[in-house]
């Protein structure tokens, strides 16, 4: 139970970073933290006591496996996070290029 809560806490720390930090790169790091929180949660959901990783090395293995579905989901989520993070960093670098700063308080052309 503690482990599950820790994942949620990690998620919330990421959210906190996004809401309060003023540096664009730190905001991107906040997203990475949120992402890790959920990925760890997925890995925990699939965990079963006394089970092994779902890899078949012999034809008839009399073993109990952990749930492989969340692991596949985590992999997909990582790929999506990779795409978003790369795009975010690219946009952040371009913004730096225009304004010469990463501080969102100084990047204020748009109002509202």
């Amino acid at each position: 139970m503690i482990a599950f809560l820790a994942c949620i806490v990690l998620f919330l720390i990421g959210l906190y970073a996004i809401v309060t930090k003023r540096n664009l790169i730190k905001i991107v790091i906040g997203f990475a933290l949120m992402e890790y929180g959920i990925n760890l949660l997925f890995a925990l959901i699939g965990f079963r006591h006394g089970s092994v990783a779902p890899i078949i090395t012999q034809i008839d293995m009399p073993r109990r496996f952990v749930d492989p579905v969340p692991q596949a989901l985590v992999l997909t989520a990582i790929v999506i996070a990779l795409g978003t993070t790369a795009l975010m960093l690219a946009v952040a670098l371009r913004i730096y290029n225009r304004y010469k700063t990463f501080d969102i308080a100084e990047i204020r052309k748009l109002k509202g």
């Binding site: 990779l82 790369a86 960093l89 690219a90 670098l93 371009r94 730096y96 290029n97």
Partner: peptide, 16 residues
């Protein structure tokens, strides 16, 4: 794809 991302991010550095 990853190599493209690396090159694209590196290219922004040149612009800067």
């Amino acid at each position: 794809g990853l190599f493209t991302i690396f090159l694209a991010l590196a290219a922004i550095k040149y612009v800067m």
